[in-house]
């Protein structure tokens, strides 16, 4: 189903605009276009942005320092683990001026903070409750779906921790684990996986089944 102006084919630019809604937002909107279009339009009017892929250790002050370069910030809402109330790697920023939220997406998406690539998306506006992770462990769902080791985001993903990893037909690479200054305290078996996404074809069926219980829109980010 068409998303009105967001599906319109235009020839007025030589390259795409970086302030276009992400594929995640579009996919989400497509599931229920009547509300979806409204959300998309709202996200162009709102002064709010979503930021993902943060390190759990990145502080509000660091975020403030970077994004204040885009415009005056009204509020930063750190994303929290719903059980532990600790930062779980995402946040919302509400600017004073709605144009600044668009500029933040244009100018800072995929740049680095704390050595991690920021994932910035337009947002229709913050509502209470969205500051909490929606994963079963309290954090973001994306952290439960990954198999890699990510020191800044709590180590291994839940899939690994819960032993689902044993079912995986993946190539264990015991030879090149070179994360020497790891000090998160999480035990690891000197193995390392590349970043895997649930869409990868080799994931066995039982894991896919488990994923069915999770709402579909959790693939990349959690809002």
């Amino acid at each position: 189903m068409s998303l009105s102006e967001f599906d319109e084919i235009k020839f007025n630019h030589t390259t795409k605009r970086l302030d276009f809604p992400s594929s995640y937002l579009l996919k989400k909107a497509r599931r229920n276009p009547s509300i979806g279009i409204k959300n998309l339009r709202d996200s162009f009017q709102s002064a709010t942005i979503y930021i993902g892929n943060l390190s759990f250790l990145t502080t509000e002050e660091q975020i403030y320092e970077l994004f204040n370069k885009v415009g005056e910030i009204k509020k930063i809402i750190m994303g929290l683990d719903k059980f532990k109330y600790t930062p779980c790697g995402f946040c919302f920023i509400i600017f004073k001026n709605h144009r600044d939220s668009i500029n933040a997406v244009k100018y800072l998406n995929n740049t680095k903070l704390d050595d991690r690539y920021l994932q910035i998306d337009l947002d229709p506006g913050f509502t209470e409750g969205r500051q909490f992770g929606r994963g079963t462990n309290g954090g973001q769902v994306s952290d439960e779906l990954r198999y890699d080791f990510d020191e800044d985001r709590g180590g291994y993903g839940k899939q690994f921790v819960e032993g689902n990893i044993n079912n995986l037909d993946v190539n264990f690479r015991g030879d090149d684990f070179n994360n020497n200054n790891n000090n998160t305290g999480i035990e690891h078996n000197s193995i390392r996986f590349g970043a895997r996404r649930k869409t990868d074809s080799y994931i066995p069926s039982d894991i896919n089944k488990e994923n069915e219980n999770i709402p579909e829109d959790v693939e990349v980010i959690d809002t």
Binding site: H13, T14, R17, L18, Y107
Partner: peptide, 8 residues
């Protein structure tokens, strides 16, 4: 003129 796409 390409202010909307810094990568390009």
């Amino acid at each position: 003129s390409l202010e909307f796409n810094r990568k390009e």
